[in-house]
Write a protein that binds this DNA or RNA. Structure first.
Length: 319
DNA sequence: TTCCAGGGGTAGA
DNA sequence: TCTACCCATGGA
């Protein structure tokens, strides 16, 4: 069966999927030739469904094998809307981009809906897996987590797995997380996270709905073991808050290239993007994306085939 | 062998 | 709040 999900006029599927590295992490599979995203959505501890998403007029089309209960359809709609941020209005950001000499193309191309996971739990695990490792190791860790403890797809039964639920990860031994998924010192962080969610000590739905300030949100996120300033900034971005930068070595590298000779302390980096408030993260990410495409000889236009190949084969990707 | 990669926790000042 | 030190892993 097929589900149509409407999107805002500036929605761009290729941009939404390919402008953040999460699109190459399991259970996502991007087909650059057909410009389709195949992923496996976890419905519960035992049930997951593989779907394919493609662009359609005024929205996206979700192809689902077989028939589903109405509740299952609702879950898939919600997961896809979250992943692709279909409800996020970026009109103000794009208006400011149009007035900018450096960021005009962000508006032109519909840049800004950076892909995220079907759930906040999955986002947190993945962000912890990006800390202090190369991108290749992140990909391997997430592959192993989904491959060993993910929920097998029941429809179709194709060997694919949805990302593991907190329940499933809470039951895995820390030593297994280290040995099989090569999580290293991240293993206890992820096990604590899964157990805190499962045993009711951490309410991720409350964090998802949180409507206080971004500073307060980051303080909440930093209470999670393994989440520091960088991870909190990244998670805030994934939650749709762009006014908290995730300062890391990659940001320093980019700013040294764009503005040679300047000293880039964290305070200097925050001050540099302050003019974009509350869209500092998106303004930075667009510059990072442009630098990436420039270094790899990409044209400014989105070219799914080149984008997919370039990112999946680079040695230490960071988009 | 050493350093570093999209850092984070902890102890001590 | 800041600094030093330690924490796995794997590639260069």
């Amino acid at each position: 069966m097929k589900l149509f999900l409407p999107a805002l006029p500036d929605f761009n599927l290729v941009s939404a999927v390919c402008s953040h590295g999460f699109f190459v992490l399991a259970p996502n599979v991007w087909d650059p030739t057909g410009a389709t995203l195949t992923t496996t959505i976890t419905l519960n501890d035992e049930q997951a469904i593989t779907i394919t998403i493609r662009a359609a007029d005024a929205g996206i089309l979700v192809e689902i094998p077989g028939a589903l209960l109405s509740s299952e359809r609702s879950q898939i709609r919600a997961a896809v809307r979250r992943m692709l941020r279909l409800d996020e209005d970026l009109a103000e950001f794009h208006a400011r981009c149009r007035a900018s000499a450096t960021h005009a193309y962000a508006a032109e191309s519909g840049f800004g809906r950076l892909i995220r996971s079907a759930s906040l739990f999955e986002d947190i695990v993945k962000v912890i897996c990006t800390c202090n490792v190369t991108w290749r190791q992140t990909v391997a860790m997430v592959d192993a987590l989904a491959g060993h403890w993910g929920v097998p797809a029941t429809s179709p039964s194709n060997g694919a797995r949805g990302f593991p639920t907190p329940n499933r990860l809470a039951r895995v031994r820390e030593s297994s997380l280290k040995r099989i998924a090569r999580l290293g010192y991240r293993a206890p962080f992820i096990q604590h996270l899964a157990r805190d969610v499962t045993e009711g000590r951490l309410d991720l739905e409350a964090i998802e709905r949180f409507d206080g300030s971004t500073d307060e949100l980051c303080r909440l996120l930093r209470q999670i073991h393994g989440v520091g300033p960088y991870a909190a900034g990244n998670l805030a971005m994934l939650l749709g808050r762009y006014d908290c930068l995730a300062i890391d070595t990659e940001m320093v590298r980019l700013l040294r290239i764009l503005h040679p000779g300047r000293q880039w302390t964290p305070a200097a980096m925050r001050a540099h993007y302050e003019a974009w408030r509350p869209y500092q993260f998106l303004a930075y990410w667009f510059e990072l994306w442009q630098d990436y495409t420039a270094r790899h000889g990409q044209p400014r236009e989105w070219q799914p085939e080149q984008v997919g190949r370039a990112i999946t084969t680079r040695k230490a990707g960071n988009i």
